[in-house]
């Protein structure tokens, strides 16, 4: 009963968020602002985790698969495909759920408890559309770029690991990067990223929008936003993997 209530209210909120906006031009600048705050502000953390993830996958594979029957160039291939298939979409999604999700929930939650949402409503503005729609659109626009960026940075991280250690020679690593490349994997990764972007922004906005009480509840709502976005991301990941790759 409780979960049905939340699902129903979530869909109702989304329906309001996607209603025709009052003044299109204003929404355009709101979307740009959100691209800046949700996307550009996440570049740093994406850079750091991607470099390290690429390096770690490369080293792990190099040290664990020391068998004469397994060619060394598979290390580069593994780094490439792991980044594309899981890390740059799912792991980056989880990191963004933590960073962007808690950010959105606390921003909208604060607006709720300080009556800023009431202020929008009383002016006759559709607060769900004004606050949530630009965030969803911004994330759906910018996250695919973050995804591609993460893939490249991760692969570069693996190359740096090859260069700085003697786990695998850089030439063989690069040879592996070119080996058996499946372009569909990129499309698959991109699709996941789009769905995750939608999940993170809409679920977090939902938790922020229905905060009632004070500062303590805002904190709880942002925790819930992160937890539920993360669970939904992992659940979607399983479904996607089974549907697309099986």
């Amino acid at each position: 009963m409780n979960i049905l209530f939340h699902i129903g209210r979530y869909y109702a909120l989304l329906a309001r968020a996607f209603k025709k906006p009052e003044k299109g031009r204003i929404y355009f600048s709101l979307i740009l602002r959100e691209i800046d705050s949700l996307g550009i502000n996440s570049l740093g953390i994406i850079f750091i985790i991607s470099v390290f993830m690429g390096a770690v996958i490369t080293l792990q594979t190099a040290y664990n698969v020391e068998s004469p029957f397994v060619p060394r160039y598979l290390i580069g291939l593994t780094a490439r495909d792991s980044m594309i298939l899981e890390f740059s979409s799912t792991v980056v999604g989880l990191i963004l759920a933590g960073k962007v999700g808690s950010n959105i929930a606390s921003e909208i939650g604060t607006m709720r408890v300080t009556e800023q949402i009431d202020a929008l409503e009383i002016m006759g503005i559709n607060s769900a559309g004004y606050l949530i729609f630009p965030k969803i659109i911004a994330a759906v626009i910018i996250n695919p770029f973050l995804n591609i960026l993460s893939i490249f940075i991760g692969i570069t991280g693996g190359y740096l690991a090859a260069l700085l250690t003697n786990a695998v020679s850089p030439e063989i690593y690069i040879q592996g990067l070119y080996y058996a490349f499946v372009p569909f994997y990129i499309a698959y990764s991109m699709m996941k990223t789009l769905v995750f972007a939608f999940i993170i922004t809409s679920v977090s906005a939902y938790h922020g929008y229905y905060v009632s009480g004070g500062a303590l509840e805002i904190g709880k709502a942002s925790t819930r936003a992160v937890v539920y976005s993360s669970i939904l991301i992992l659940l979607t990941d399983v479904i996607f993997t089974q549907m697309m790759l099986a």
Partner: peptide, 20 residues
């Protein structure tokens, strides 16, 4: 119809409710 009337309403909320 309510929206129409709402544009004739000004409201000062208890905490101000300014957009921060």
């Amino acid at each position: 119809e309510k929206k129409q009337i709402r544009q004739e309403i000004g409201m000062v909320f208890q905490g101000g409710a300014l957009f921060d």
